[in-house]
Structures are given as C-alpha cells and as structure tokens.
Nucleic acid binder design. Structure first.
Lengths: 193, 193
DNA sequence: ACGCTAGTACACTGATCTGTGAAGTCGGCC
DNA sequence: GGCCGACTTCACAGATCAGTGTACTAGCGT
C-alpha cells in the first residue's frame, strides 16, 4: 500500500521529506495536506497525483522511517569486536543514537496511537516494524546460545519500547536504564542456560 | 487546568463519559466536539458552558482516568498476603486486569503522541501519571529493602510502559513477559543487595 | 415572587479538512 | 514533430473544525 520511497520523482521526494518532518513533530491528524504542499513547495494537485491519498502518504512516511531504522540497527550489529552477547543488546545502542535526533518518541507508536482504524495502511507498516525487532531479538538471543530465546525476546522488546516512551516523557536516562536491565536479564539466562 | 471529575453536573458527567470513550477509541484529534455533544445527548452550548474548551475537556478526561488507574493499583497493593517483593510487581498485576478492558493501549501515551504542543493542559496530567508510577516503584523497592531503588524503578517503569505498548500492537502475552522480567530483575538485586 | 443554576434550541462565524476538475507549461525522448 | 511525464494554477466541492450569541425553559431554594 505505501509507495516505494526509493523511486520517487523530485517533487514527491520533497513532499515526503516535508510530510515526514511535519507528521513526526506535530502529529499525523493535526497536519493537513495543504500545509505539506506549501512546505514542500509543491501544489496539492501534485501531492495527489503522486500519492493518491493522505493515507498512502502516511504509510510511505512510516515505510521510509522503518527502512532507516533497520539500517541503523544493522550498522550497530556490524560494528567490529562485538561478542555474541553484546550483539543482543546492540539495538539499545542504536536506540540511544537514534533518539538523540528524534525527541518526539517512536513514530510508529505515535502513528498507532493516532490511527485506530484497523484498515489504515500505515498500521501494518508500524506493526511490521515491531514484529521485525521482536524476531531480531529472538535470532540474536538464539545465536548467543541463550536459553528460551523467544520469551527473552518478548522481554527485551518491552524494555526497548518502554525506553522509547519513557525517554520522551520524563527526564532521566530511560534508554540507559533499559540497556542495563537488558544486560541483567541476559546475564541471568547466560548463567542458568 | 482540568476540572474536578468528582464535582460535575449531570450533563457534564454524560459529556465526560462520552468524550472518554470517543477519545480513547478514536483518538483525541479525530473526535470533534459536535460528535461528543451528540453522543452525550447534550447541546454543544452546554459542553462549552461546563468545560470552556475542548482542551480542558481532554485534560479532565485524562485526570479521571489517572484517578481510576491509581485506585486500581492501590487496590492491588492492598490485597492480603503479599510479600514486600510481591508488592513491587503488583502494578504489573493491576495492568493485566486493566488491559483486559482497555485494548487501545495507554491513554496517556496516546494523548502525548497526539498533543505535541507543550502548552496543552493534558500533557502535564499525562506526565504526572508516569512520574507517580516511577515514584511508586521506587518507594516499593525501597520498602522491600532492595539496593539501588532509584535505577531499578526506572527499569521497571520501562518494562511497564513497554508492556502496555507491545501488548496493544502485537499478539502474545507482553504483560506476562514484562512481569516475568520484572521479577527476574528484582531477584537479581535481592541476591546482590 | 425572586434569582440562581442547568440545560435546550439553533443559527452562525471563519477557518480548515480531504479531495477533484480542467486547462496549461515545460523539458526530455524517440 | 509528436508524445509523455512532471508539475502548475486556480476554482471548487462538501464536510467538519472549535467556538459564540441570543433567547428560552424548568426546577430549586429562599
């Protein structure tokens, strides 16, 4: 349902960039297509010619953000010198770097909060991101030889998402807290398994 | 800034009840005052006579939800036969019961996602709820004689909020996962401290 | 009889919302 | 030359947005 963010016309590129910034900072429902068109230096007609609807534009915004976030995590995993156990908590390191530039919390969580309609194309994109991270945690835990990789992955995902939420609401180092807790949970499994 | 949800006229009561259901299910920005008035069997004039603005109505909605949630947690803490360690994870038990009736996630997180404007009266209500829970975790941990109660409380809050988010997005028992992780973190501290 | 509070009825403002229709411009490509 | 894709301009639809003004009614306590 979303467009491929890699194959966009120049106008569509500017539209998506402007929309991404506005959606994230002000909220999806609160931002109208008129504002996006004005901000990207493009007419509303072009916006609809390229994307067809606001819903598709929203889905494409999340799809591109998902691509970038996965690339960030992948890069963190490819850092040299990581032990198998270090790799399990690498997404928390990526998250620390990510949130330094994105202070309004998780775009996917925010989108899900704003778009309760189960049929909205953006919901599937957002849910996919969470599923991907859960599967990644499970794979990394299994590769580290940890027992009960599946339930551990669920626990790590909770810590991860919670850190994202808490960090955007309260002062303090929520991501540091979560990373520390993740290492403690992993250490407990490493001893017993 | 919010009204006292305890001292409402009959009309205001119906308005708040209808608004709470609609805000939670459909989102705050997506719900207009006309719909709230119609749904509560009251004219829009009455809505504005009672609440003054939509923003105050939103803040009052969150304030009442906060009251009810705190009562739920307090009740869970007063169950007989709880050890001091059990009490630390009691909010996770309350959360399990709570989410059985509220499937659209955390009203406060959702509100913060939708209302980026720092001046919105509802933001302070939502942030207060998180601060209260963080302080509660710290108090319970200290009462259980656990070392480093403050950082532990931060970790537990991440697990708690993460469970709320993950549970509303993916299938599976996120709250069970988080509760198990919380007990593991506490056990690790109980041994060392 | 008086005033106070709660609420109704309803028209109305001005702005904004998503989305469309029709016509025209521009450059590149075959 | 001919065509196409990208984009512009502008008007417009129909709905909805938050919020207001005015005039009215019903009940209650004093």
């Amino acid at each position: 349902m979303p467009l491929d963010p890699q194959t966009l016309t120049p106008g569509a590129r500017r539209i998506l960039d402007a929309a991404a910034a506005l959606f994230y900072e002000l909220g999806i429902t609160a931002v109208g297509v008129d504002l996006i068109a004005e901000r990207s230096g493009v007419t509303k007609r072009t916006l609809y010619d390229r994307f067809g609807s606001k819903d598709v534009l929203v889905a494409t915004y999340l799809a591109e953000r998902d691509q970038r976030w996965r690339a960030e995590v992948t890069a963190a995993l490819e850092r040299p010198g990581l032990s198998a156990l270090d790799r399990v908590t690498a997404p928390f390191d990526a998250l620390a770097a990510w949130t330094a530039q994105h202070s309004r919390g998780c775009a996917f969580i925010n989108a899900l909060a704003e778009l309760p309609d189960g049929g909205h194309p953006a919901r599937e994109v957002a849910a996919d991101e969470k599923r991907w991270l859960l599967a990644l945690f499970e794979r990394l835990a299994a590769e580290a030889g940890l027992a009960d990789a599946a339930p551990l992955a669920g626990e790590l995902l909770c810590l991860h998402e919670g850190a994202l939420v808490v960090g955007s609401v309260l002062p303090g180092d929520a991501i540091g807290d979560a990373g520390r807790a993740a290492r403690a949970l992993i250490a407990a499994r490493a001893w017993s398994g």
